[in-house]
């Protein structure tokens, strides 16, 4: 018996889909903002800080990069209340995702900082550039340009990683999918719809990164990653 696809029952739940999408976007953007800040601090601490700090940060990085996001999510969500910290689902989700992204971002941003040769800073000094000008034109922008492909693909992975948050019942897109699926019994159509939404979100974010890169660098932007250069920089998947 042939199966007939019917998307109408799924589309009847459009408000749930929209709510889920909005929650996913909120979750992703908060995690990305926090995670990148964390990564920036981590990278500076690791390259400039005292050795105890650098060891502490690299331990954090290795621990979070070598365990699954889902387990980190469970630890934050189930274990924090045990030590008396009762956090709402969304906070736990953002916290876990930001810590996860922070670990990857630390390594990525550190690679960018290390890649700027000291001689370039000295060249800037000898041209009479101010401290701020040196940080902006010689360190920040070129370093960001080097790491941009790796960083943006990691951010995309964070966006997709938010789907895992449905496991601790955060009401984002994937959990909306489960709800709709259990109401309509149209699993295939539900998950195809959800997949399409995620794909459009991803392309939207990639476009956004491209625009930001265009504004920051004033030249050709590469947003696809070149994994060969450093395989460990980006982590694929959950």
């Amino acid at each position: 018996m042939a199966y007939e696809m019917q998307f109408q029952p799924v589309l009847n739940y459009a408000p749930d889909l929209i709510d889920g999408t909005v929650t996913t976007l909120v979750l992703a953007s908060q995690s990305i903002a926090l995670g990148v800040i964390l990564g920036g601090l981590g990278a500076i601490g690791r390259t400039e800080g005292p050795s105890w700090l650098s060891i502490a940060i690299s331990t954090y990085v290795e621990v979070f990069r070598n365990t699954p996001l889902l387990v980190q999510l469970f630890l934050v969500f189930f274990a924090l209340p045990m030590i008396g910290l009762q956090v709402p689902v969304m906070v736990a989700a953002v916290l876990a995702m930001a810590l996860n992204l922070g670990a990857y971002a630390t390594e990525i941003i550190r690679a960018g900082i290390v890649a700027i040769p000291k001689a370039q800073i000295e060249a800037g000094l000898s041209l009479g550039l101010s401290r701020f000008q040196i940080i902006r034109h010689i360190i920040f922008i070129p370093a960001l340009m080097i790491i941009y492909p790796a960083l943006t693909s990691q951010l995309t992975l964070t966006l997709l990683g938010t789907s895992i948050a449905s496991a601790i019942s955060a009401a984002e897109l994937s959990s909306a999918a489960s709800v709709i699926e259990s109401k309509t019994f149209r699993s295939l159509e539900t998950y195809i719809t959800i997949a399409l939404i995620y794909i459009s979100l991803t392309f939207m974010f990639r476009f956004l990164y491209w625009i930001i890169g265009k504004i920051l660098f004033h030249r050709k932007v590469v947003t696809s990653k070149n994994v060969v250069e450093d395989p460990l920089l980006t982590g694929a998947g959950a």
């Binding site: 994937s174 998950y191 997949a195 794909i199 991803t202």
Partner: peptide, 12 residues
């Protein structure tokens, strides 16, 4: 595939 969450691929 890279723009779809693994979870959704698994569910599908």
């Amino acid at each position: 595939v890279q723009a779809t969450p693994l979870l959704i691929v698994v569910f599908l």
